[in-house]
Simulated scan of single mutants.
Amino acid sequence: MNDSDPQRVVREELEWEPSVDDAHIGVNARDGIVTLSGTVNTYAEKLAAERVAARVDGVKAIAQELEVRDAFMRPEGDDDVARRCTEALSWTVTLPKDRVKVRVEHGWVTLSGELEWNYQREEAFEVTRKLRGVKGVINNMTLKQRPTPSDFRERIKAALVRNAQIEANGIAIHTDGSKVTLTETVPRWSERYAAEYAAWAAPDVMDVDDRLTVI
Rank of each mutant, 00 (worst) to 15 (best):
R69A: 12
K130D: 14
F152D: 07
A88K: 02
Q120C: 10
W16S: 10
P96D: 09
L143H: 02
F125N: 13
D3C: 07
T181V: 09
A194Y: 01
G32M: 08
G170A: 07
T92L: 05
W189L: 15
A159P: 05
R84N: 14
I62L: 07
E184C: 09
A202Q: 05
E105W: 09
A29S: 14
Q7D: 10
A195G: 07
Y119G: 09
R103Y: 10
L143T: 04
K97A: 12
L115H: 01
R211I: 03
D3P: 03
V34W: 00
S4L: 14
R162W: 12
V27Q: 01
D204N: 13
V180G: 00
V137S: 04
S190D: 07
S150Q: 12
P75Q: 12
K135L: 12
P149M: 09
A82V: 03
L14E: 03
E65C: 11
V102K: 10
P6C: 05
V10S: 05
V208W: 00
I25D: 02
T35W: 01
H106W: 07
K97L: 09
H174M: 05
G32D: 09
E12W: 05
T128Q: 04
A88P: 08
R51Q: 11
V10W: 03
T128L: 06
E126P: 06
S112V: 08
L111H: 10
D210T: 02
N41G: 15
D31S: 14
P96G: 07
L66C: 06
V20A: 02
W108K: 13
V180W: 00
V10Y: 02
K101E: 13
E17A: 13
A44S: 13
E114G: 01
W117N: 08
E154A: 15
V59G: 02
L66A: 01
F152Q: 07
L182R: 02
E196M: 09
P147N: 11
V40Y: 02
E67Q: 15
G38W: 04
T148F: 00
T94E: 13
E167P: 10
T92Y: 01
K179E: 14
E76S: 15
V27Y: 00
R69D: 11
V214W: 01
D31A: 15
Q120W: 04
A82Y: 02
R11N: 06
E105S: 15
V186E: 04
C85Y: 00
K135W: 06
K179S: 14
R83G: 15
R84T: 12
I171C: 03
T39V: 13
A164V: 14
S178D: 15
N41Y: 06
N163Y: 05
S37K: 01
H174K: 11
P18R: 07
A71P: 05
V161F: 06
